[in-house]
Design a binder for these strands. Sequence first.
DNA 1: AATTGCCCATGACGTCTGTCATGGGCGCGG
DNA 2: CCGCGCCCATGACAGACGTCATGGGCAATT
Lengths: 201, 201
Amino acid sequence: MIRILLADDEHLIRTALGQMLDLEDDLHVVAQAARGDEAVRLAVEHAVDVAVLDLQMPGLDGIAVAEQLAQRLPRCGCVIVTSHGRPGHLKRALAAGVRGFLPKTTSSVTLASVVRTVQAGGRHVDPELAAEAIAAGDSPLTPREADVLELAASGAPIDEIADRAALSPGTVRNYLSNAMSKLDAANRHEAVATARRLGWI
Amino acid sequence: MIRILLADDEHLIRTALGQMLDLEDDLHVVAQAARGDEAVRLAVEHAVDVAVLDLQMPGLDGIAVAEQLAQRLPRCGCVIVTSHGRPGHLKRALAAGVRGFLPKTTSSVTLASVVRTVQAGGRHVDPELAAEAIAAGDSPLTPREADVLELAASGAPIDEIADRAALSPGTVRNYLSNAMSKLDAANRHEAVATARRLGWI
DNA sequence: AATTGCCCATGACGTCTGTCATGGGCGCGG
DNA sequence: CCGCGCCCATGACAGACGTCATGGGCAATT
């Protein structure tokens, strides 16, 4: 019997997935969480075999949860399920020790089988996402550029970004200019959109 | 026995929800669709009693499907389920004749009960969303302003927007300026963010 | 020790953008 | 009929923004 933690902030989805997994004879959902921090706590508390994590959650996101669990519950395998599969997320997830990565568009039979694979120590990432990740390559942004771009994401004017990043406005513009050229964007907002699409911020 | 069409582009979610609804004695999912146009076709073909629709789908979105069904299958009730409940969407949905509106964060028992309510001719909208919708009020944007703002959403420069809207660049700037003041934003990108958040574009 | 790359900053230049004033055409309701 | 609001447009101005050249400090690599 494989003991599972299920984490997703959407109640409806979480219980539906839970019921579905419970229908399998060898799978048992022993805990559910709506938030990332809650997920870590419950996973450790119940010493689950596999954690099925939504990527976007309040508190900690799925990848952060996986990082925590890799340290605090090394025997637990992590499967990440997501609506929007950005290439960058896959990379970060794999770096965090995640062994299963699926978009929510995959067929339902896959999930159970991936849970079993991961519990057995195997890996499974969605082939299409894997291809995208390879095609997208690594982020060309330096850490600082990514920071600044992230701050620019809300649409704030330069001065506010500079203020929040504790940089001079000129420096902010330089970083953004660099990021824009690297991302082949005509302005920083386009750059933000591209970086988001590729999961680089 | 209430006959249901279930439409959601996320395969995993769709089958999970389907199984969950099928567990209820009086509910039966007779058709599933991954796209809006497919949903309309199947709903008519099976003459379903209730359509459970995801808001964001390829093809037609949930509201567009509801509009079609209101004409082509008037006896069918529509329930819209969504991840991101923007106030504006609720308004548009109600205008399209939708009688059930739920965020995916609601508890799972609610869905079945809302399906029954809607089938019986009743209404149910999530109280929290309703409150937000009332608080947000109606969109202050003129149709043309909304158009232009939508085109600006991708981060394109003014000239491109003007080109795609068949307007002069000056006019575009005027519209955007109006929208920005109405939305209390410092630049058009902030305006886009606000309008999106409120479901006005 | 030298090179390379990232981090931070400044200043100057030209363009893009947002604002404001203004005006004409059009449809709707008083 | 006459206002009113929306649609479209132009022109001018100030400030924001993107680009470029330049330079110093620092860590890692060679």
